[in-house]
Design a protein around this nucleic acid. Sequence first.
DNA 1: AATGAATGAGTCTTCATTCAT
DNA 2: GATGAATGAAGACTCATTCAT
Lengths: 213, 213, 213, 213
Amino acid sequence: MSTPTFKRLPRAVREQQMLDAAVKVFSRRGFHAASMDEIADEAGISKPMVYAYLGSKEELFTACLHQEGTRLMEAIVGAVVPDLPFDEQLWRGLRAFFRFVGAHRDGWAVLYRQARGERPFADDLAAMRSRIIEVVAGMLDRGLVAQGREVRAAELEVMAYALVGAAESLADWLADHPDADPDGMATRMMNFGWTGAGSMLAGHQWRPPPAAD
Amino acid sequence: MSTPTFKRLPRAVREQQMLDAAVKVFSRRGFHAASMDEIADEAGISKPMVYAYLGSKEELFTACLHQEGTRLMEAIVGAVVPDLPFDEQLWRGLRAFFRFVGAHRDGWAVLYRQARGERPFADDLAAMRSRIIEVVAGMLDRGLVAQGREVRAAELEVMAYALVGAAESLADWLADHPDADPDGMATRMMNFGWTGAGSMLAGHQWRPPPAAD
Amino acid sequence: MSTPTFKRLPRAVREQQMLDAAVKVFSRRGFHAASMDEIADEAGISKPMVYAYLGSKEELFTACLHQEGTRLMEAIVGAVVPDLPFDEQLWRGLRAFFRFVGAHRDGWAVLYRQARGERPFADDLAAMRSRIIEVVAGMLDRGLVAQGREVRAAELEVMAYALVGAAESLADWLADHPDADPDGMATRMMNFGWTGAGSMLAGHQWRPPPAAD
Amino acid sequence: MSTPTFKRLPRAVREQQMLDAAVKVFSRRGFHAASMDEIADEAGISKPMVYAYLGSKEELFTACLHQEGTRLMEAIVGAVVPDLPFDEQLWRGLRAFFRFVGAHRDGWAVLYRQARGERPFADDLAAMRSRIIEVVAGMLDRGLVAQGREVRAAELEVMAYALVGAAESLADWLADHPDADPDGMATRMMNFGWTGAGSMLAGHQWRPPPAAD
DNA sequence: AATGAATGAGTCTTCATTCAT
DNA sequence: GATGAATGAAGACTCATTCAT
């Protein structure tokens, strides 16, 4: 009577099983092509349970999105030690990012490949991405200030977009190549982004040729 | 006033109408959520014609993919004048790319946001992307050779991936901001990519701090 | 002006082409699975022509049915020479029947395999079959009378049904075995039917065992 | 009054209901003209259940075919008592056959009228028919051996084809005449087939007239 | 006379979602 | 708490049939 028999798993555990199953299925099928049946099967649970615990398919997908997004953010934020020189911060953030993608390929696929095109979730996703962009832009800004230089916020944001896009592109490649080394990817990305950003920060600038039409 | 009876158009015209409508609908709904009914409506034609001319939904999506992919490639390739210094080539290619995205937002959405996650099309898309990556890698290689330096092909490819990813990211931002200036985006991207690539090509290299764990 | 140019084939020829094409297609697909498109293609003619000449799909199928049915009847009737002893008449009729099936496999398939199950045509078919049954029953009757014996009409009809069924069964087998010899089949059938009917006519009769439950 | 809630029946029951409904509908409409909607209605159940339990329309038809085919075979085989004189065996088999057809008119229609013409099922059907043909041929063979005579296997098979065809023809007639007496039909068929086969087995043989052209 | 273009209507099939036990 | 049974709604696809040229 007092202590419940734990034969029937506690709610939290069940929910986690379901979410993991859902991420797996969504990652390989996409939102629409994934069926609640397949997800329930994958979780080894009956369909009504899924509804009871996590609500509609849309809510389920959103839950997956938030779980993976949060994990990713936490991985990155947890890796960035303040008070370090900011190139090292960038490096740590990137390394955490690539490590995460390497270790959570399914989650990455849901975030990057599936959520992007599905109307109802694109906004959620954009919001998460914005947070990352801002973080990166913030890093760059602090880097500039440290050098006594200054750039318009809009420019910073664009640069951050480019950096993040490049990192995502490499991460996506990583997700398809299980044997690739995440840390190596992070190093390459750092090289690319940092020297690029670095030389920009150093005031180097490329200008379009005059006769542009 | 004079003639326009909008019926009994010749096949080629109708096909183009349908493709355009399909791109529009696929771009805003995604492959699964788009219905053939909506596409037919958008094209101002009945569903059976769509099937008669373009085949199944999958074939239709593929047709959209190839049309937009080809247009994009042609826009870029047509803009790159050989015999120019290679930074200027890169610049022209990028400018053409951003202009294309600015002018064909729907097509871009189909290519970049929708096709990526849908299993049956991901391969087609990856093939197109590979062609671009190779072109970019080729440009970089020629740039290196011109400087008398050399980099492993694998490294080149990774760099190309990063560059393309960065450009795509900015392009995607552009697609969501109708007022943004494509040429300006191209300039920013050039700045970012070129100074980055430039400083790498110049031999600058970033190395991870020793105590990496 | 006076004599029409026969470039455009005369109506009768066209109609025959269409009917032949229709028989071919109906025989291999069945009524429902056959499409007017396929029939038009097979006839090398556009669909509206088919409608103009032969009317709806149902009318077309009926036309096929009647054509093949009539051909079959004419083949049989044309082969039966009156005034011959009636076993020889039966033989000639059977031989003509098997020859027809061997030479018009498609027509046979339409008659025997396709029309039977399709509600709107079963009646037409049954009517044709009835005519044959009656002919056969008539033959048997004349045979009996010649022997000074007599059998109830109902019994005769049943016997005719059995004979016709047996012949159809063999014919159907023949239709699937292009190398089989129609005359040989006719002989076998004659053997079977004639000795059977013959011994019945001769007054032999089998009776069920008494303890039937 | 007391209990009958007609809902939430166990799977096996529902499956049988569906099969019965399907046989009914297929028998009167044919495979193509039958709609899954009508079948579901007839079964008093919603369409998705039909798909869930019995699969596609084709699978459903096949299931009907096998059910009825099996029932028929079992009825016949169950009626044939070994160790009886073989004419009595034949008699019992025939009687069971006609009784079955009389009692399962729909099943018979599916087997004999509908399945024959539909390409994907003709093979299944032919296989069942072959089994019966072989059984009959076996009976005939044993009859011959008992008489010390012998006939080529091919001839036996043809004779079996004829016998089965005759029986089918009568059975089909029976299916359309609800008031006819199955046992009477069996007797007539026995008479026909047995005296026919009997006189053949006795060595009587009909030969075509010499001047055949 | 002849046909490419066009469609209304209908069918199979699937899926998210909910009862009843 | 847990699930087998059940369905409304919707979407892909096809086809007989008819215009307009």
